[in-house]
Design a binder for these strands. Structure first.
Length: 230
DNA sequence: TCATTAAATTGTT
DNA sequence: AACAATTTAATGA
């Protein structure tokens, strides 16, 4: 069998963007890629560390967080299985500005910076893809600012869950996400108790199903459309 | 494989 | 913040 033909299909299992590459490019990516495993709750890197990889989540869930001056942890974003992140840091060649923590047992695919930069500079389609990815993320952050001005807790939780499920950035998602209500509360900037009640509200509306350490979302569209009426 | 125990998570006040 | 109830994970027979 021609090994060049297998490069793309091998890469496709961990990188949904494999199709935009040529066989030669896919082979280079595989050569520059590694795998890392983390247990639930362990740090992938701390703020200020160098972590010079573009990173894809094969399985698991990763949160971006920092510690406030008051010593309270604040979670800013979550990335689900299938998502790729860190391109901003890699492009700027900077240390990480946030802690990265694995929320559940997590497998990462990591692409080293030289290979990433080579792709960026030599593959038009990859640069095109990155632009799209950055544009999507920009839209997400603006939506986050908008969400944080919404005061109804159920609507906030709904919006943050939709953010975690966003199909454009995280296409390999199944119909549920493994996250505790406490962590979801961190994401939404709510207490665990309020998050618990918000989930009950959403569940009563048939939009989510709260299970142990897991939240199922049968219809992302309907959840995205949830609005507080009062 | 099953029962017991510990730990984590959730529901409620 | 505290407490009880529930679920999962770990242990060992």
């Amino acid at each position: 069998m021609d090994t060049r033909l297998s490069a793309k299909s091998e890469l496709r299992t961990v990188a949904f963007w494999a199709d935009i590459l040529s066989e030669e490019e896919a082979a280079s990516v595989i050569a520059g890629m590694g795998e890392r495993r983390y247990h639930a709750g362990s740090y992938i890197c701390h703020r200020g560390d160098r972590f010079d990889f573009w990173t894809g989540i094969t399985t698991g869930l990763v949160k971006m967080s920092a510690v406030s001056e008051a010593g309270k942890p604040m979670t800013y974003a979550g990335v689900c299985a299938g998502g790729w992140f860190g391109e901003g840091t890699i492009l700027k060649n900077e240390p990480r500005k946030y802690d990265l923590v694995a929320l559940c047992d997590t497998h990462l695919a990591v692409l080293n910076r030289p290979t990433f930069m080579w792709l960026f500079e030599n593959s038009f389609r990859f640069a095109q893809f990155l632009t799209h990815q950055l544009n999507e993320r920009m839209g997400q952050f603006i939506a986050t600012i908008e969400s944080d001005r919404v005061h109804d807790p159920a609507e906030r939780v709904a919006r943050h869950l939709v953010r975690l499920f966003n199909p454009a950035l995280y296409p390999n998602m199944r119909g549920y996400i493994e996250i505790t209500q406490e962590e979801l509360g961190h994401l939404a900037g709510l207490s665990r108790q309020v998050t618990n009640r918000a989930l009950a509200t959403l569940e009563a509306a048939g939009l989510v199903k709260a299970q142990h350490n897991r939240i199922a979302v049968p219809s992302l569209e309907r959840l995205a459309g949830y609005r507080y009426d009062g």
